[in-house]
Every structure is written in C-alpha cells, then in structure tokens.
Design a protein around this nucleic acid. Structure first.
Lengths: 226, 226
DNA sequence: CCTGGCTGTCACATTTCCGTAACAGTCTTG
DNA sequence: CAAGACTGTTACGGAAATGTGACAGCCAGG
C-alpha cells in the first residue's frame, strides 16, 4: 500500500518534476493543475497527503487549503505548502490555514522527500494542533494569542508564547534545546542554545504558579507536564 | 463539482458575456432574462450563487432579491448585485435587501471573478457577516457604513471603516498584518505592511476612547478586544 | 481646472524585546 | 566529598517592532 500523494501546481513542468521524484521514492501520485480540480480530486481520492503550490490561477493555494480543511472528508489530510515568500509562512502554518509544513522555492528533491516522510510518519498517529488547550487552571488560546491562569491573562511576548505553545502541544515529551530552536525560532537558526534557557526562565517567571508544568530534564531539554 | 451560478439580466449580450467569462473560469452557469424566470430557476436548481442585475423589466432586481430571501429554499444563496448607480448601494447591501456584494457597471471580468471567488470561499463555511455589531458603547453598522460611540457618529474613511469591521468581525483573534492586507486591501496587495500601522493609528485617533478595543500584539499583529 | 480629502510611503522617535555573556547555584559522578 | 557539568539568574547593549508626524500622488466633486 503506497501512500497516495496529490500534487497541485499549475506549471506542468513543476508537476512533472514532483511526480517523478515522488514516484521514484515509492509514492502513488496524482496531480491537479488548479484549485477546483484539486478539491475535486482530494474529495474523490482522499489522498494521504497534499503537496500544494500557493500560486495558482483563479483559486489560490490559501483558498484551496481553507476549503480542504472545511470539508470533513479532507479536513484531516496533511498539507505541505510550496510558498514563495517567507512573509507568508506564519499564515500558512497558523490556525487560519493549518498547513502541516511548508517549503520555500526553490527546494531540492531531497528536502521535499524529508518533509513528506516526516509528516507521514507522525500523521499516522498525531492529531492536528488544537486551537485551545487547557491544563487545569492554565488555558492557552492560540488564535487569541492569550494565555491565562485562573482566568487572569498572562502577558507574554511573541517568543515566549510560541515557546509555551510548542511545549504544550508536545505535552509529556521532552524537547531538546535544538529542537526548540528549530520549532520556535524557525528552521535553521544560528542562535546559541543557551538562549532557550533564558527564555524558559522568563516564561517561568511570568507563568508564576503555572510554571509547575515546565520541567527541566537535565542533560536533555525541557518538557511540559500536564 | 463546479459551483452553479445563476445569471439574471435582460440584455442578451450581457448574459452572453457573463456566461462566457464564468464558464471560462470553471463555473456551471444558467441564465434568466427576467425576474419571474429567475425565481423559478433559483427554486429549481438552488444555485451556489446568483448574479443579479438591478435593471429588469417587470420585476426589478430589488424585488427578485427580496423574494429570494423570503423563501427558505433560496434564502441563504449568496447574491451579487449589478447596479448602475452608486446611490443604490446602501439599499442593496442594507438590511432590507441583504445582497452579499455589488458591482457597479461597467466592470472588468476580473473584478467579477474576484468578487465571486471571495463570496463563495467564505460561503462554504461562515455565515453571512453580521450586519450590526455592538461592543459596549461602540456600535458598528455595516449596511449604513457608520460607526458610533455613545450615539455620536464617528467619521471614518472607507479604508478605516473596513479595517475596523474586519477586526471587529474576528473579535478576539489576532490578525497579522499580511492577513489584514489581504482582507481589507482586497486581493493581491503589493502594499507595504507598515501601511497597516498608519491606518491603525488614524483609526485609533478617530475612535478616541473607543480605541481601547484595539490591541497591538507585538510581533504578531492587531486584535480587537470586546 | 483646481481643490480638498484620502492614501500609501518614508524618516524619525520610542518602546520593547531579544540574544549573549558572566556569574551563581545545583546536580551528578567518581 | 569534591570536581565538573549543567542549569538558573542577572544585567546589558543592540536590534527589531511599533508609534508618530510629514509629505506627495491621486481621485472625486465642484
């Protein structure tokens, strides 16, 4: 049972290239050249994954993504977005669109395959991040960008908030400093791992009693405990 | 599954032009030349959208719109009105008629398609945006294009008003600058994100005490708080 | 044609935040 | 118990993000 991947791009050459590489890697591939066709195929085939270019005629990738999420038949299919501008990344990965990952053009086939493999690996089990998380008296609301303890909002900076949500979404599992740097500080950051410590400290300070959820795992990293 | 669009216009040339453009864009199109026929077809087909010219013999576009809204079968179908005079706009979008959007003739096919796309995109899930919103002493009236504070109207320009309503409609949720550019400045904006800041400033200035609802979320965007 | 208001952009001021380094405290290991 | 490794804490310079004021182009209405 090869995993089925739906490739959406309006440039035939790009489709061909993607198709070749993915087939080479052992995936079953289908393709669509515009948004409407993509939605139709996605509904009909329920692929294991959609690789979606942002630049499309008529209905752009954002719209397609949104629509895929709306319909029950396709709402849980992982989406990998191919985007041109770095500025769009937050929106792509954010809750509004909820793509699972992104790649900025140009990218190497190797990168693509790695991302796909990663998403499919977790996709089997993991669910999509929730909009709101509650751990006792601690509430984290992503779209509102607010955290609160016993109903009182906690003022957090953008980085602190992202660090908290990243840890909370992987509650129970330890995250290494490098891993946190990748996920919170975006992909390859050239930042000292000790910076994570400082931010953890600030976060703990602001969380007050709620910081009991934040464990230090000596020699490994940090963990959010329920 | 192409979206079905019902085109209503009494001029055969106009119908033909619309039909051509819409079919080109991947929609399924049917047409009617007068009000009675339009209602009949709408009932029978329950299209995904109605494009409705105001100028019709016998029963004009306003009447058709009203009747469509009255019957359960068609009351939720989005309506895009084609109107000649700007003066009619208020009535078209207002509570009495409740069209979803309008276009003043003459318009380019591109404009038409963009409007249609936008309406269909939201129509799939979200309900029609609320006509009037109240947040304490602040009242925002979309059809009248008016905002007021403690009963006193606040003079806002078109952009300021749209920015305010966009934020208010997503009250509580943070909107990134890019997102606001997309939603307020319409489709493909080649505009500096800093422009959003400037308009937020002007908006705050005019809102005066009511500007307490407008939060800045540093590193993320802006948020309307109730 | 011209005038006034709206709009987008820029430059500058200001605030806030971030990353780093240095040091102190704590835990592990032999 | 002591040394070394790891983490917590503090302070600070610099940078990034936002607020603010000014300005020129543009369009609508007169």
């Amino acid at each position: 049972m090869k995993p089925k991947i739906l490739v959406v791009d309006d440039e035939p050459e790009a489709v061909e290239l993607l198709e070749f590489n993915l087939k080479q890697a052992g995936y079953a591939v289908s393709a669509a050249g515009d948004g409407a066709a993509a939605l139709k195929k996605a509904r009909a085939q329920t692929p294991d994954m959609v690789v979606l270019d942002v630049m499309l005629p008529e209905m752009d990738g954002f719209e397609v993504c949104k629509n895929l999420r709306l319909e029950p038949a396709t709402s849980r299919v992982p989406i990998l977005m191919l985007t041109a501008k770095a500025a769009e990344i937050d929106r792509v990965l954010g809750l509004e669109l909820g793509a699972d990952d992104y790649l900025t053009k140009p990218f190497s086939p190797r990168e693509l395959l790695l991302r796909i493999k990663k998403i499919l690996a977790r996709g089997a089990s993991a669910e999509r991040p929730r909009e709101q998380m509650r751990f006792g008296d601690l509430v984290i609301d992503l779209p509102r960008h607010l955290a609160s303890w016993k109903g009182k909002t906690i003022e957090l900076t953008a980085t602190e908030f992202k660090l908290l949500t990243t840890l909370a979404q992987r509650a129970g599992r330890v995250q290494s400093r490098d891993q946190l740097l990748r996920d919170v500080w975006e992909y390859d950051s050239l930042i000292d791992t000790r910076t994570v410590d400082t931010h953890m400290r600030r976060l703990r300070e602001k969380l007050g009693p709620a910081s009991k959820h934040l464990d230090t795992v000596r020699g490994v990293g940090y963990r959010f405990m329920e």
